[in-house]
Design a protein around this nucleic acid. Structure first.
Length: 424
DNA sequence: TCTGGGGTCCTAGGACCC
DNA sequence: TCTGGGGTCCTAGGACCC
């Protein structure tokens, strides 16, 4: 059986652990740039605030309803996630950390009562040690376990639900097809137009039709919902295919020089991430675009380049990125976003030897990068940067409502005051 | 004024090879 | 003028996930 353990409203829950005044109130967590809601508390959902709601449209409404909004604090969420995952993986060696707030576990038990006991223990232990509420769904396929989890969150009071051959049809009938793992906005619309609204109706569709309209991935979802396992647990995370670094600007940017600075910063960051994973890339691409929500001239473009030698040097990456940017940049537009993507990732140690000797500057670059990385590790990121990243930064993203890094920065660790006469 | 960032996989079509 | 069969690789676009 698969168990899917999923943290409830994870980002909001992380904030509530350290700020109890956020409990029982509508809380939304904002995207980068404080743009729109990426996570919501149950109270906010109950008020009808949708995921993706732009803050500027909902600010007054939230104020009226005692609501709170916060910038996303990924340092905090990442650290809390690690703590939760440590606990979950102690319950089963067959554990796949699927995302920042959920993990699949496999257990060799099919007895519903026993599974329920394990689930309860999971929920209690995670809450006791981290303060994060958890929901658990179980079934014999991953897709059904996800569906059970959805049911557990929406309907079950205990935070646990199990889908078995006996109750499968009645459970699936209560779950909208759009909530099924693997069925997104497009396929939901397609299915609705064919009269399919709940997950049970979807399981009754003909396989050839699904294969034709929803490809092999849709067919896999179909089989999994019917109880045939098609998606296995992934113990070892698959090797990385690409690395992306991009940001929207706080204010629109037109000048080439400022765009160039942003691309250098993202290029530096992407290459540093690559180095921390001990990878090198063999090609990269750069893109830019204007604001699609604005009624003004639109332009977007991207281009890529293959590298002579695979590399993870921030200097080479940013140099090449600038070459691409020059080629696709057009003046006269207000740009909203730029980004860089690294492709053809391979392990540094598995690098194909070149026919020609490495150039001298490449060896010097490697040393330089490792020195920069160690300085930034020790004294905090951006202690040293490339001059080409620029220092003006007036385009940088907004994070006006950021909470402290309660668990990862010495100065932010909460103080607990205890009155001494009450201690004994 | 203000609408995120970072990923994966599948398919079709074009260009090319023998 | 007629015109086969079997491939690979690359890219763009579309779908999905968190």
């Amino acid at each position: 059986m698969f168990l899917l353990a999923d943290c409830n409203n994870f980002y909001v829950s992380c904030e509530r652990v350290f700020n109890p005044s956020l409990r029982d109130r509508p809380v939304i967590i904002l995207s980068n740039n404080d743009g729109c809601a990426v996570a919501l508390s149950n109270e906010a959902k109950a008020l009808g605030v949708p995921r993706g709601a732009p803050l500027f449209k909902w600010r007054d409404f939230l104020l009226k309803n005692n609501g709170v909004w916060l910038s996303s604090n990924y340092t905090l969420y990442g650290d809390m996630s690690r703590r939760v995952m440590d606990i979950l993986s102690s319950f089963s060696e067959d554990c796949e950390v699927y995302s920042i707030d959920e993990a699949f576990l496999r257990i060799d038990i099919s007895d519903e009562k026993t599974i329920q006991k394990i689930a309860r223990e999971l929920i209690e232990t995670v809450y006791k040690y981290t303060g994060i509420p958890l929901s658990v769904g179980s079934a014999n396929t991953k897709t059904l376990a996800k569906a059970a989890n959805h049911y557990a969150k929406k309907t079950a009071k205990t935070g646990f639900a199990c889908i078995t051959p006996a109750n499968r049809e009645s459970m699936l009938q209560q779950i909208p097809v759009s909530q099924i793992w693997g069925i997104g906005y497009r396929h939901d619309k397609l299915l609705k137009s064919h009269g399919v609204n709940n997950a049970l109706q979807f399981t009754k569709l003909c396989e050839t039709w699904i294969k034709k309209r929803m490809s092999i991935t849709g067919l896999r979802t179909h089989k999994e919902l019917n109880g045939t396992p098609c998606i296995d647990l992934q113990h070892v995370p698959p090797s990385r295919q690409s690395i992306v670094s991009s940001r929207s600007f706080g204010t629109p940017v037109s000048s080439f020089n400022l765009l160039n600075e942003s691309i250098h910063e993202y290029g530096y960051r992407a290459a540093a991430r690559m180095r921390s994973m001990k990878l090198v890339c063999s090609s990269l691409s750069v893109y830019l675009c204007t604001n699609r929500f604005k009624d003004e001239p639109q332009y977007s473009n991207s281009a890529s380049v293959s590298l002579e030698y695979p590399t993870n040097s921030s200097r080479t990456i940013t140099y090449q990125a600038e070459v691409i940017l020059k080629a696709i940049y057009r003046s006269g537009y207000k740009y909203k976003k730029t980004g860089i993507m690294l492709h053809g990732l391979i392990e540094n140690s598995e690098q194909q030897m070149s026919l020609f000797e490495k150039k001298d500057y490449m060896n010097r670059d490697e040393k330089l990068m490792s020195v920069m990385d160690s300085i930034n590790r020790r004294y905090g990121s951006k202690s040293v940067i490339l001059a080409s990243e620029g220092i003006s930064r007036n385009w940088q993203m907004k994070r006006e409502f950021l909470t402290p890094s309660y668990t990862t920065r010495w100065s932010d660790i909460p103080l607990v005051k205890v009155e001494s006469n009450k201690m004994f």
